[in-house]
Amino acid sequence: MNQARAFWLVLTLFFTTPVWAFQTGVVSIPSVAMRRAFDATIVLPDDYARGDHTQRYPVIYVLHGSGGDYTDWTSNAPIGRLADRYHVILVMPDGGHESWYIDSPFDPRSQYETYVGTEVVNWIDARFRTIAARQGRAITGLSMGGFGALRIALDRPGTFGAAGSISGAVDPRKCEDEPGIDRVFGDPAEHAAFWNSNAIVANAREFERDHIDLTIDCGVSDGFVTSNRALHQRLVELGVPHDYAERPGGHTWSYWSNAIRYQVMFFATSFRHNGWHRQSAQV
C-alpha cells in the first residue's frame, strides 16, 4: 500500500467512527529496512477528533509478544479506553512472530528494531498531531515485547523518554528454548557475546545515564519472574530510579490487561512531569 492510500485509510477509519469515544483503526506502515509494509493498530482519544485541533498528543507504543501481531492488545484487553482517560495516542505495530524486536545480524529480513524504533515513529509523527520529542513518547510491551520495548528504548534514548515491560522476557539467555529465537540471535554457544550484550540486565546502568523513566512488572506465577527480579535487583544496586511491581498472576491476558492500566498511568505521569502532556500545535 502506498503512503497516499495509507493516509486516506487513516482519514477514513478515524473520521467515520463515532465521535463520542476513542477511535480505533488499522494502517499500513512501510519499512525501507525490510522492503515491505506491516499493519498497525492505532487508537486516538475522543478529543483528538472533536476537541481543539491545534492540540498535540503524547504517544505510547505498545508491543505484542511472540506469536502475536498488531491486533493482540485491542482484541484481548480494553486498552482503547485508556487513550480517552489519559489523552494519549496508542500505537500497536506488528513486530513479527519471533523477531524479538532486534535488528538481527543473522537474518536480514528481521530488522524490527529499526522498523519499530525509527520507521514507525517517523511515520506516525508525520501523519498525526503528536508531540514529536522524547518527552512525549513511551514504549512498552508484553513478554517478547517487554524485552523489545526496553531494548529499543536503550538503543534510542533520543526517541523515548519512558519505557516499560510487562511480564518481559528481559533476559533472552533464559529463553534459548523459545521457537525461532536462534534465527535472530544466532546459535547461543557460537554467538554468546551477542546474546550477553543484548540482555537488559547487562545494560541496566544506561537507563539512568539516558534519564529514561522506567516501569517494570511481572506476575508472581510467571515463568519470567526470576529474570525480572534479577533486573530489578541490579537496578537497585546501581541506584537507577524505576518503578517495579509484582502482582498475583501468570503469563496470561488476565494479568496483562490489568497491568497495562498501571503502565499507561505511569507514562501519563511521566508526560506531565516533563511538561509534555498535551501541547498546542501552533508555534
Rank of each mutant, 00 (worst) to 15 (best):
F22M: 07
Q23W: 01
Q23E: 11
V26Y: 11
S28E: 15
S28R: 15
S31A: 06
S31T: 12
V32F: 12
R36A: 13
D39E: 15
D39K: 15
T41Y: 01
T41N: 07
T41C: 01
I42Y: 11
V43E: 00
V43G: 02
V43W: 01
Y48E: 03
Y48N: 05
A49P: 03
A49V: 09
R50P: 00
G51L: 03
H53L: 06
H53R: 15
T54R: 14
R56Q: 10
Y57S: 03
I60T: 12
Y61M: 08
V62A: 09
S66P: 04
G68T: 04
D72E: 12
S75I: 01
S75G: 09
P78S: 13
I79W: 05
G80E: 03
L82F: 00
A83H: 07
A83P: 03
D84K: 07
R85T: 15
H87L: 12
I89E: 00
M92G: 07
M92I: 06
M92Y: 09
M92L: 11
G95P: 09
G96F: 05
E98P: 06
E98H: 15
S99Y: 05
D103L: 09
S104C: 03
S110A: 14
S110H: 07
E113V: 03
E113F: 04
T114S: 13
V116C: 04
V116H: 02
G117K: 07
N122V: 07
W123K: 01
W123E: 02
I124T: 07
A126H: 12
